[in-house]
Design a protein around this nucleic acid. Structure first.
Lengths: 207, 207, 207, 207
DNA sequence: ACTGACGGGACACCCCGTTAGT
DNA sequence: ACTAACGGGGTGTCCCGTCAGT
């Protein structure tokens, strides 16, 4: 299929996913009922089930869409920075900006998916695991490995350790921010991580 | 009635809370059904409703119980250490040990409660908020303030910032550990926090 | 047993009936739950079941008590009047006064019992039937028959017809009064019945 | 869609209301359980809840249907008579015929609704109040007012008083008839009311 | 005689999925 | 492709009754 060309069915499907994505991230991937999804999409049950075999399939598609938005933010941020320290700074800033200028309401979809899928939604849980693994290994740890290779980060820095710290503290801060309705937590954590980046960077230049 | 003596009802109630607490932390505070709670406690609906006015009340009691266990671990850890840096180290170690030698299965109840109460369980959410606030303000930030007064921590250290960083990164690490079934995340974060504590402590002595 | 002497058990039983009677006439003989009866009597379930084999038995006893109060009002009113027209006037006045100066809240127990026992409470229905039959045949119709014998009422007056009219219109008026919260209905009906009595009385003297 | 055409859903909904109306008037608007309604309509819960948001909504619709039948009987009776005395006679006869040739079993829905909604079914109670008010003010009292204007009824006749007497005694008679299974009560009351109408009519002609 | 504890059975409501229509 | 109609299972809650204790 050529870019820009969509059959009518595809357009409808896309619209369903878009509306569902917005709703689910706010109301909860598990809590939102099919009735609410019907109201959000303006379609009836049968209309939705024409495009998705089950509510779960729609939820997964919507989750992917929301995660994709965040991934795109990261990609575009990385496109502007080459060095490992810079990219790590950018990584933090993306999430910080995500809180203060959210591209869609409801907070971080990765976190929300992780929170709400416990036990009841195994396929979503699996999907979240994949996303988080990618965040850890293919994003943060990869940046660190590249930085080590290029000598931008101190020898002995553990890529996996950095990844754990970054993802843990950021997702934890998003959780606090969301739970308490207080954005200072992500700011405090961001400041800490910026310091941390500087402490493991070989370069002397201050940000 | 003498202290230390329990009527039959109190014993049963305690047993219900204990069994429910174990179940709910694993199955989910929201997902676990009353039927499962009946199976876990060995009582019928009538029996449970004799001790609790609603499923929600039981859930809250079970949540309190689980949170109380963690609080007790913290208290006993703090009882062995006086200085602020030592207490912060102990704080981290409690959570690290919590993962490796869990007093009950299912992970951190605070986190689980926060995860599963989104929107659907307002009273539980409120409870979690209280617990997290206590963790931030009355535990970590208070320790830091004491350390500043006594000159154990560097001037300029922000108690609230430290609290945000500690709670965020630890809860985030617990989330990763739980989600991915991989305890290295809490270990990485713990190591990082230990370093961080040393970096803000005035004392030169290494741990 | 001598009058005025009550064993402790009898006193408790009487207290249960009294409190239950007051509650049931207001909350409804069918709607009031055992929990409410417990609260009203200050006893626990077992305490009540010591005196009554079932909720239904207590309801019946309470109903009898309430009906007995009305019956006593009628008896004492009849004791002051000998002639049939006078007694019929008195009959009407008892119910009219019952509305304006109720001896207990909730309205006419006969009516309430009739209303609330439909289908679900067969024994109470049977009891109500008996009470209404007594009201029709042994009270109103009997007065009319006496009046006919003594020539106080016009020949050709049908005792059963008068009874139907009196009981129907009075109970109907109580229903309207209760349903709409408007006491004018019983007043209108009372005025009408007083006129009706005068129209079937042989005596010329106006009331 | 053309008038007079019913979709399948409308037909089913109508059938639900019809069957429910018949059942509820007999079994009781409060007592009849959803299971019984399912059996009566031949539908499952899901099918019923597709047409009604709650059991209460169905009950109200069924009540309205039954009341509507009685209202239609009154309207058609009034259509054949113009004068106030004639219409009052017709009013009485409608209810008398209602007992002897009931259009549906279970007796007068207005009465049944009033009886069974005490406290437990506030919306039904409100509905019944409206129906009774209409019966009093917009039906009987209005007829009397018209009769007074046209000089068909004696001056000094109180429309509200007549309404109270008519509705009270008829509903009371229906109550007795239903409670005791004895139709003579409505007949006695009807005879009385016919006499009463003649006594307040200016016309000399006997019925 | 009275309490506390527990069983057991309804009951109304929710919500996902599917199929007959159009 | 989309709607309306319907099935069916599960959920929390209510509430009466009973039985062991004391």
């Amino acid at each position: 299929m050529r870019a820009g060309t969509e059959t009518k069915g595809e357009r409808t499907r896309r619209r369903i996913v878009d509306e569902a994505a917005a709703l689910l991230n706010v109301r909860g991937y598990h809590a939102a009922t099919l009735e609410e999804l019907m109201a959000a999409t303006g379609l009836r049950k049968g209309g939705i089930y024409n495009h998705f075999d089950s509510r779960e399939d729609l939820v997964l598609a919507a989750y992917d869409r929301n995660v994709g938005v965040v991934a795109a933010l990261l990609r575009s941020a990385f496109a502007e920075h080459r060095g490992a320290p810079e990219r790590l700074h950018a990584f933090v800033e993306v999430y910080q900006r995500f809180v203060h200028e959210p591209p869609f309401p409801g907070g971080c979809p990765t976190l929300n998916g992780a929170l709400q899928s416990r036990g009841t939604e195994p396929r979503l849980t699996e999907r979240v695991r994949g996303v988080v693994h990618e965040l850890l290994d293919d994003t943060v740890a990869r940046i660190v490995r590249g930085g080590l290779r290029r000598g931008e980060l101190r020898d002995g820095t553990d890529p996996d350790g950095v990844a754990s710290v970054f993802v843990s503290s950021i997702e934890g801060a998003l959780l606090l921010t969301e739970l308490l309705g207080d954005a200072t937590h992500i700011d405090h954590v961001a400041a800490h991580l910026h310091d941390y980046i500087d402490s493991i960077a070989t370069s002397e230049e201050l940000r």
